[in-house]
Structures are given as structure tokens and as C-alpha cells.
């Protein structure tokens, strides 16, 4: 069982929201991964939909490259829509 592949679990907590990564688990195939995800991650009504994907299929960014990947965005505040005057009547923005 130590050799069972690892799977990542994504759960949509309610309709209209996106799936969110909640954790991982071990399973021999997709069907078992789905059942395990149901048993491990939705016991307290956390979700209405589950995605599972084998961890090896996820390509992750390399933390060592964080400098060139993410820092260039930090001094470009003009990319945030923070320069507009909003009328008071507008809510939820």
C-alpha cells in the first residue's frame, strides 16, 4: 500500500464556486481515489462536487524560480484597478 499513487483532491463547496484544493490521499485508481476523497474530505458536508487528479500529472512551479516568476509583478501597481473614483452608491466592488 506504500506504493499506491498519490492523488490531489479538489472540492467545490457549493454550486457557482470553483473547485479548491483540499489535500491529497493514496489510491490505486481513479475510482478508489474518488471514494476515498468522499470518505476523507466530505464528511462534514464540505462539498457538492469532487475532482481527483493523480499528483504526478500536476506540473508545479519551482520555488527557486520565484524571483523571475513573481517579483516582476510586484512594482506594477497600475495593473490593479485602484485608480478609479467609485461612486458611493456602488456596492460589492
Amino acid at each position: 500500500m506504500k506504493n499506491w499513487p498519490l492523488w490531489e483532491v479538489f472540492i467545490r463547496s457549493k454550486n457557482g464556486l470553483h473547485h479548491k484544493h483540499v489535500g491529497s490521499l493514496h489510491a490505486t485508481d481513479a475510482e478508489m481515489a474518488m471514494q476515498n476523497a468522499r470518505d476523507v474530505y466530505t464528511r462534514r458536508s464540505e462539498g457538492v462536487s469532487i475532482w481527483v487528479v493523480e499528483s504526478k500529472h500536476i506540473t508545479a512551479s519551482n520555488p527557486e524560480e520565484n524571483g523571475e516568476l513573481f517579483e516582476p509583478a510586484q512594482d506594477k501597481v497600475y495593473r490593479h484597478p485602484t485608480f478609479y473614483e467609485m461612486p458611493d452608491e456602488l456596492e460589492h466592488i
Partner: peptide
């Protein structure tokens, strides 16, 4: 349980 996932499934 033999593994955590099965342990939780059985207790569920």
C-alpha cells in the same frame, strides 16, 4: 485500518 483512507471509510 490498513491505511488512513480505509480506516475513515469503515468508521464512516
Amino acid at each position: 485500518g490498513p491505511i488512513l483512507e480505509v480506516d475513515m471509510a469503515l468508521t464512516n
